[in-house]
Write a protein that binds this DNA or RNA. Structure first.
Lengths: 215, 215
DNA sequence: TGTACATCAGTGAACGCGCGTTCACTGATGTAC
DNA sequence: TGTACATCAGTGAACGCGCGTTCACTGATGTAC
């Protein structure tokens, strides 16, 4: 790649990063402007058009990048669970919450824009969530406690429930961390973790006692 | 109430209704303007200030009204389930989806603005969802299949899971109905209903085999 | 009941501002010879 | 290797537009006598 191409690529990525940063710090993607994004990067507004046709196009690209992050995290979680079958629910959850802590932006973006965003972004997100669902269902297939879930349909229903809940867990966690004064924070964190553990155990209790109803 | 007060109240409600309408037809509350809302009602922009200090204040009021709608629907569902213990999951769900169909705006508004909206609206919503949770937990307490869930903590965890999932069910339903061509629509509806039934049965299977783990 | 004044929901002009987008440009990098 | 031209990321001025908000106003409704 030539010097020119490299620099262009850097600017492009800087615009994407700036848009993600701006749209995950209290405001939503649909309420940030093209000019703000350019300003954040130190570019003149018109330079934006060298990289994207408009904010919708940037948004769609951002969805792709962000979905990839989530996919990686969810997959890692699945693999950890798979390779350490004795892993307790609690330990898996610690892993999950620390991943959210380290890099909250992808979660915030996906959840906020999933229903709240502009048409184009919403479409891109729902497509990516479909993919996420398929991949995660394949991961789940290898887990012991799910072996009697023979058909892929049931597996997808399970992965659908888990992915949707993981979004609400992530957001509960993030908004807890963001707005709880530090004195009570640790206690509140514990309480949220315990609630989430109970939710997961409830579902897996349902799975281990599962038998497909007659239709 | 005097004629003047009555008319004022009508205008106020018209502004709230217009804001709800505008913010649930493809765009989000944070992206509609004060001027648009006034225009929709047939008022001059400055008249807006006779009723609300700004859009944030209107938003908070809207959250209250919309949450009341949801509370009523969820409570009715709980009562129906309670009074007809033999009601099948499927039948309850039909009721749920037809309620969503008849009046989708409250669902769209709450879900889109829950994470995607402005600070003030988000706060108001999270408070209302807390209340919804408490009320729904009290409703659940009376259901037979939950009798061995002695403590309120577990009940709240259950109601939390169900309310969060009901939001995703409602939105899946709404976006299905909105964007599927009518030829495939009925088939897709059936598929979604079946998936949701499976999810509910999974959770209630978990409940009936529940015993509190040793912490 | 009629009159004189007070209240106040809605009006209309005006403002400054940030927005998205256009256009002709500049000057560093790339390419052909 | 050096030269002459082409490309194209980033610039800066300019535009029209819808926005939130201010202000002094109007005229129907309310109130006190």
């Amino acid at each position: 790649m030539s010097i020119r191409d490299e620099r262009k690529q850097q600017s492009r990525q800087a615009l994407l990063d700036a848009a993600l940063r701006l749209s995950t710090s209290g405001r939503s993607f649909s309420s940030i402007s093209l000019r703000e994004v350019a300003r954040e990067v130190g570019l003149v507004p018109t330079a934006f058009y060298r990289h994207f046709q408009d904010m919708d196009e940037l948004g769609k690209e951002l969805v792709d990048q962000v979905a990839l992050d989530l996919k990686t995290i969810l997959h890692q979680l699945g693999q950890t669970y798979l390779n350490q079958p004795k892993t307790k629910t609690k330990a898996s959850l610690e892993l999950f919450f620390s991943a959210v802590d380290q890099n909250p932006a992808p979660w915030i973006f996906m959840i906020a824009e999933r229903w709240g965003g502009a048409e184009a972004v919403r479409h891109a997100i729902s497509r990516e969530i479909d993919y996420l669902n398929q991949d995660f269902a394949t991961d789940l297939e290898k887990i012991d406690s799910v072996q009697h879930f023979h058909n892929m349909h049931d597996l997808k229903v399970l992965s659908n429930i888990l992915i949707n809940l993981s979004f609400t867990w992530a957001m509960s966690w993030i908004s807890l961390v963001r707005q709880t004064p530090s004195i009570e924070l640790e206690l509140e964190k514990m309480a949220l973790k315990n609630q989430t553990v109970t939710q997961i155990q409830l579902i897996f209790r349902g799975i281990s006692n599962w038998e497909r109803p007659k239709n």
